[in-house]
Amino acid sequence: MSFELSVNLEYMFHEAGERLEDRMAAAAAAGFTKVEIFTTGNRDVPSLKAALGASGCQLISVVTDPRHRLIERDTHEAFREMFRIAAQEAVELGCRNLVVPSGPAVPYMRRPMQLEIVAEAMASLLPIAEELDVTILLEPVNTRHDHPGVLFSMTEDAVKVAEMVNSPRVRLLYDMYHSITEGEDPTVILPAVAQWLGHVQIADAPGRGEPGSAKVDWPAMLRLIASVGYTGPIGIECSPTRPTAEALAYIQQLCA
């Protein structure tokens, strides 16, 4: 059982400083050749591209702007414009995965209707995704601790939208930390959504520390991920409890 690992530079390798370029070099020195970041907005894309080349790292995913209120149709045009820019910058960096958040839910509209409107927004991105050859990753995140008020709080929310859009360009980003924190059981959820998996991310729970810092049985969870047929990289999106390279040594060993 082996997996390649990618590391989110927003959370890790802070020892190297504030610049993502320097964190990228530190990640490469620690043996990681795949990295992830949040948005490219207001960032020096040519500098990031040069750093990727110098470090030998591959950018696995970037996140689009999460502030769009997608349950309101009059936001969809601006959402598409934002997505095109984000996708163009991702492609410039050699990245083909765009994480697209759901935006907030509202209390005055039935949940199925909200999901339907968000599915319309996602479907409207398909021509851009086809043109630029990128994949849209829908990510559920927990509302209990990290992201109160978001629409995609349960894995089923994102899967329902993916089903409505019904395109190979729209896949699920399953973050095990968010799933567990929201009260889901990965042994039940992962087999049920395996056909939609586009990417998997992990952190320990509770606390979102590095794997091995809390209560999750990581050998068992890695076997579970392998058992559903997932063979892509596993993204680590944690807040290390000690120096990053040291903190990640355990999961590196397990995945080697």
Results as ranks from 00 to 15, higher is better:
I202E: 08
H14V: 04
L190M: 13
G207H: 06
E21G: 05
E21T: 15
R19Q: 14
N142D: 13
R223H: 15
K34Q: 15
P240Y: 12
Q58F: 08
A162T: 02
T143M: 10
D22P: 01
T181C: 04
L137N: 06
M1R: 07
V7A: 11
E237W: 11
E156H: 10
A220Q: 09
T143N: 15
S47T: 07
E210K: 01
E10D: 13
A249Y: 00
A78S: 08
N97Y: 14
D146W: 07
S47C: 00
P206Y: 05
Q253I: 00
W218E: 08
S227K: 14
T187F: 14
N142C: 10
A29D: 15
F79T: 00
L172R: 06
L138Y: 10
M113C: 02
G209I: 05
S6G: 07
Y11T: 09
A29Y: 04
I128G: 07
A25S: 15
N42E: 12
L70W: 06
Q252W: 00
R43W: 02
D204N: 04
F79M: 02
V106Q: 03
I136A: 12
F3Q: 06
A220R: 12
I117M: 14
H199V: 01
I202D: 07
S47Y: 00
R171G: 10
D74V: 04
G53W: 00
